[in-house]
Design a protein around this nucleic acid. Structure first.
Lengths: 343, 343
DNA sequence: ATGAAAGCGCTAACAA
DNA sequence: TTGTTAGCGCTTTCAT
């Protein structure tokens, strides 16, 4: 069942059928009606691979993420896929587990399938791996790379704002010793988050305690072990911020294992506002990153740069905001200090 | 950069290049070597849409799931995608949110992209929606439909086994009043889970209390409200099983809000063994469904049925097993009963 | 062992 | 307004 068959049945040429399908104005309404009728009766299914072959466009966007098991990414994926469905585009998904081999392979797959653009949420931006995309003039949108290049736009999360609200919230509660469990060391996005944390402290005039800073890995395990390590500090922090919600979950698990109550003994603030935040006990106070808006920004960036791949891309910024739940409260009156002194 | 270019550079015909790429034995090793060299030097990227156009095969499998935000599906997706990467296949994802319009559209997209097969995890099996796939001889694998048809295989979860272990576990702890929060009423898979629950009770000689059965919706909200409703029963159940982990999470949240300790006051057992099970407090005792094995079974089923779409598909069964964590313990000595009497 | 060539379905340039 | 046709890149049949 192809366009020629339809054309024959409708007594027109396949070109006319094509024109009808693509909404060309060069067809009499009468002819169009006849063609549409045949189209419906024959439940015709177009074959986009012909178009892809002919024009090298596929109505497909690639999405590269590090880890589907991080709800932040799966939720983003949900929104992105929904948007693509609406615009009749296909999604080509690649999870790369921060393996550069997989990244290279994924890029190749995307090139093979002639994607019209790629959203890159890789944890690190190994420029050499994405080079081939640029060579083939495939528009790229990076997330949180905080820099733009030829054919490459960037959607950045405004950490400053959210961090400011979070620190402000803690300061108002009376916290002064605030720790931070960041991301994987060496990653640009980790640095940005850490810097935002430092700035936020500065802005409210709180002291930064370098011994209360830890690296995590954006996953549970990292948050857990960093939290254990923080507990060895004396005096302990009365509150911590984390690079993402999973890290916060891991930290809370550590505190729980150590018999330390959240938030009475230590307040915890996450980052992302993953769906499960209010399922955990206690429901997590966190800085929300609006995933739907991110997905929209990514798509807009792709659409926009599509026609000017040789020009420098644009920057998009998505805001972040504090969502207060129950993992934060005023600090306890340093019972730990007194107890320790007594020993 | 196409095969003709490569052929020219290597001084052969494009047919020979094609043969080299496909590992045909009809090429002299000498020629092959020369071609491979050119291939590498020119970093050639094949264009599968030509093959798709010519043969109607795309090396792509479709996956239809109800909801990407249910970690059960996102985790399955992770495994499935990994397997497809290994076999050099592409994934076409569709989330349908149990909207039949979306299901119909997704099926159409899959037909357009000429998928080689579809894994269907839709919550309900609206036969008319998937009819078009069968008409076009696209192999289908359903999950948990528990029936096979022409061109359609099924991968079924063995609920009986896991339920048996779960009920056995509770029975051994001394529970006798066990409730159940199932799935959406009317769905086949919900019925199967409920039946397995009933059988399991029977097998250990425990009584079934029909007033302790509730329907859920496979999501948090459903679990939560069903749990609240269960609390109104008197005497209350001392333990509950749930249709999936999200339902269990919702139930635990309800119990927590009601000030009822899990597991001291009520034991809870989930179903799936989602990654976050041991993050929650308390870590959830649950019946594990091995997602990796499911993904493997789905792929095997697709590969197997590919060449005999006109034959009835086969059945695959994946086992389930109990993972004991901390949301279960021996029942409390009916303090509630005594307290109530005192009033 | 290698090459020549047809044809998959579609669209756009061109012709009528 | 409609039709004719070339050609996108690949694989495979057939010829050599």
């Amino acid at each position: 069942m192809n366009m020629r068959t339809i054309a024959l049945k409708a007594g027109v040429s396949s070109a006319t059928v094509s024109r009808v399908l693509n909404g060309s104005s060069l067809v009499t309404e009468e002819t169009a009606k006849r063609v549409r009728k045949v189209l419906e009766e024959s439940n015709f299914i177009p074959n986009p691979s012909a178009t892809t072959l002919k024009y090298g466009r596929s109505k497909t966007y690639g999405l590269i993420i590090p880890d589907i098991n991080n709800p932040f990414y799966s939720e983003f994926l949900g929104y992105f896929e929904e948007l693509l469905q609406e615009t009749e585009h296909e999604l080509l998904l690649a999870t790369v587990q921060s393996s550069s081999t997989k990244l290279v392979q994924s890029v190749r797959r995307m090139l093979m399938r002639r994607v019209d653009g790629v959203v890159l949420m890789a944890s690190e931006f190994d420029t050499s791996a994405i080079e081939p995309l640029l060579e083939h003039k495939v528009p790229i949108v990076t997330v949180d790379r905080h820099s733009v290049h030829t054919g490459t736009s960037d959607v950045a999360i405004d950490f400053e704002e959210g961090m400011g609200m979070a620190i402000g919230h803690l300061a108002k509660l009376g916290h002064t010793r605030i720790g931070f469990i960041g991301g994987i060391e060496g990653l640009r996005t980790s640095q940005i988050r850490l810097d935002a944390f430092k700035h936020a402290l500065q802005n409210v005039g709180l002291r930064l305690f370098p011994q209360l800073l830890r690296a995590g890995d954006y996953r549970l395990a990292g948050g857990e072990s960093a939290a254990f390590s923080l507990l060895k500090e004396y005096p302990q922090p009365t509150a911590i911020l984390t690079a993402n919600d999973l890290t916060a979950f891991g930290a809370i698990r550590a505190f729980h294992k150590a018999g330390i109550n959240v938030p009475e003994k230590i307040s915890v603030i996450g980052f992302d506002d993953v769906l499960l935040c209010d399922v955990l006990q206690p429901p997590l106070t966190t800085i929300r990153i609006p995933r739907r808006r991110m997905a929209e920004a990514c798509l807009r960036a792709l659409e926009h740069i599509k026609d000017n791949v040789d020009r420098r891309g644009s920057r998009y910024k998505v805001p972040s905001e504090l969502i207060v739940r129950e993992s934060t409260c005023r600090p306890s009156k340093r019972i730990s200090t007194t107890t320790k002194r007594k020993l």
